[in-house]
Amino acid sequence: MTKINLACIIDDDPIFVFGTKKIMQVADFCESFMVFHNGRDALNSLKAIIKGGEILPEIILLDLNMPIMDGWEFLEAFTAIPTPVQIRIYIVSSSLDPQDINRAKNFKSVNNYIIKPIALEAISDIKNDL
């Protein structure tokens, strides 16, 4: 039950981001957030952080359907980059399609697939996983 220092949310839906932040606050999940609205922004910023040797987020909540660069493309690109520490990635999507769920399993870096809406319990579970 360690408190996370930095959590990263990659999602284009501001309501989801708002809600998730709220839940995380309620659950006393993390110290601070990092939010991106598409995969491209997230990838560029994370790359810069790695390059600059700054602090990386410990977990990433990743949406699948996003403009510019979607969740799958982000996963492909990001998992190809070596990171100094292991980052836990959770896919959070409203897709119930078994094809999506199976595809997520093929990424070793993906810890779990969470179906929206995200609930307090889900956040607590993630916290317990750590």
Binding site: I15, F16, G19, S94, K116, P117
Partner: peptide, 16 residues
């Protein structure tokens, strides 16, 4: 699919 994300948001907001 899309409706789900909206209903999900409403449910989540109500919960909060």
């Amino acid at each position: 699919h899309n409706l789900r994300s909206h209903t999900g948001n409403i449910a989540m907001l109500l919960d909060l």
